[in-house]
Design a protein around this nucleic acid. Structure first.
Lengths: 226, 226
DNA sequence: GCCAATGCTGAGAATACGCTTAAAAGATTG
DNA sequence: CAATCTTTTAAGCGTATTCTCAGCATTGGC
């Protein structure tokens, strides 16, 4: 399975070089010139790893990490910086970066680190139960509950809810959901997604609980308390 | 106390599979694709056991052992190899490996060897009888009971039930079960698993007891009271 | 309030999945 | 080396799940 890497740096030269190098290594590569664009990319494409420059105009690396972690986004982050002072390194890792690389670096080193990151057992986070509001979903036991009331889901229903719960409060576009949960490019006009949203709503609101899965007209859906 | 295992192999597939299996067994897992990376991992994380492939590009298994033992590192080593020639086995052990396993192997076998190597807490837990609900299984005497009613199992049936009982309440995916109970290179494509689940159910419910082995459609099976 | 555009729902068709059964293939044992 | 036990393969069948489609409901712009 091909991993997606988002490279965030304000230096077009470096961006270009990394783009080519990583593509050559078999990664799918996205780029962003600053922190704000990076956040948009993350929301839109959910990359596996973000390579993040520390120093950027506008929203800098640390800012990006803080924003991501604030919404509980756990995307792997590899921090890149020209400074090599120990305190920076510490701050970077403490803020929530998963690895750290000092410029200038050899592309091979970067690639090695990337592979190491991707191999790192996401297992811990993958097997932890997810909660949002009074929704509960356990990836390992596949138990699903709304408050005290537990309910059964089919595979697709489970996958979809799992997906929504991994991105709470984020507005997810229909194509994105279809791609990530169904795994194919959305073509023509079929409405599987609507149907499944319907199924999920029926089950998550069977006890008269307030709606958590909201429609964002012309865009997609959000898991949100309201 | 959770033991840390370092797996060193150049086959990403095997690496991946061992990663999942060992994590499922409660080990912390590190990986390295070659000897050099392995040495770095050892230095950085001091694993309790190293699972080491004999044949690797660059620094091979024997080389790793030699280097480690040269600096008086006594980390336990379990050697893995496709060759089964006696002289290799001898060389492997003489160079300083602590145990030896020939590919292809069933992951369950590997796990057993690991526990044996780690002796301390493991032996106890490995030879202790397992129970779940009113099911009873003794790994050593191979006695199996449902409440007061004891029943006989064939080897595969026993292995499968043993596996399920080591992971109660967890939904185990079919591929995972096949891999761990039948062996990682099992390709005989079909429905052995279903058949064996059928056998086990027949035997565990022969006295009209409620079902404990449940199907999770499109995913796998769980051992669970319901 | 009207009308496109968009989303929801119910019903049925198509499909995927798992269970059973039986028999073949492989081991094991006396 | 035959008899028996174990493991695997294969096919058929029932049913849960997934998908499609058509019509209805809702939304927001005008």
């Amino acid at each position: 399975m091909m991993a997606t890497i988002l490279v965030v740096d304000d230096d077009p030269k470096l961006l270009n070089m990394l783009q080519r190098t990583l593509a050559l290594e078999g990664f799918r590569v996205l780029t962003a010139p600053d922190g704000t664009a990076a956040l948009a990319q993350v929301q839109a494409h959910h990359p596996d790893v973000i390579i993040l420059d520390w120093l950027m105009p506008g929203l800098n690396g640390i800012g990006v990490i803080k924003q991501l972690r604030a919404v509980d986004d756990k995307t792997l982050i590899l921090m890149l910086t020209a400074r090599d002072a120990i305190e920076d390194r510490v701050e970077g890792l403490e803020t929530g970066a998963d690895d750290y690389l000092v410029k200038p670096f050899a592309p091979a080193e970067l690639v090695a680190r990337l592979h190491a990151l991707l191999r790192r057992p996401a297992i811990a986070s993958q097997s932890d139960p997810l909660t949002y509001a009074d929704l509960y979903l356990h990836p390992v036991t596949r138990e699903t509950r709304r408050g005290q009331r537990s309910f059964e889901l089919t595979r697709k229903e489970f996958d979809l809810l799992h997906y929504l719960m991994r991105h709470p409060r984020q507005v997810l576009r229909r194509e994105q959901i279809l791609q990530d949960v169904w795994g194919y490019d959305f073509e023509g006009a079929d409405n599987v997604l609507e149907v499944y949203i319907g199924y999920l709503r029926k089950k998550t609101e069977a006890g008269g609980e307030p709606r958590l899965i909201h429609t964002v007209r012309a865009v997609g859906y959000v898991l949100r308390e309201e």
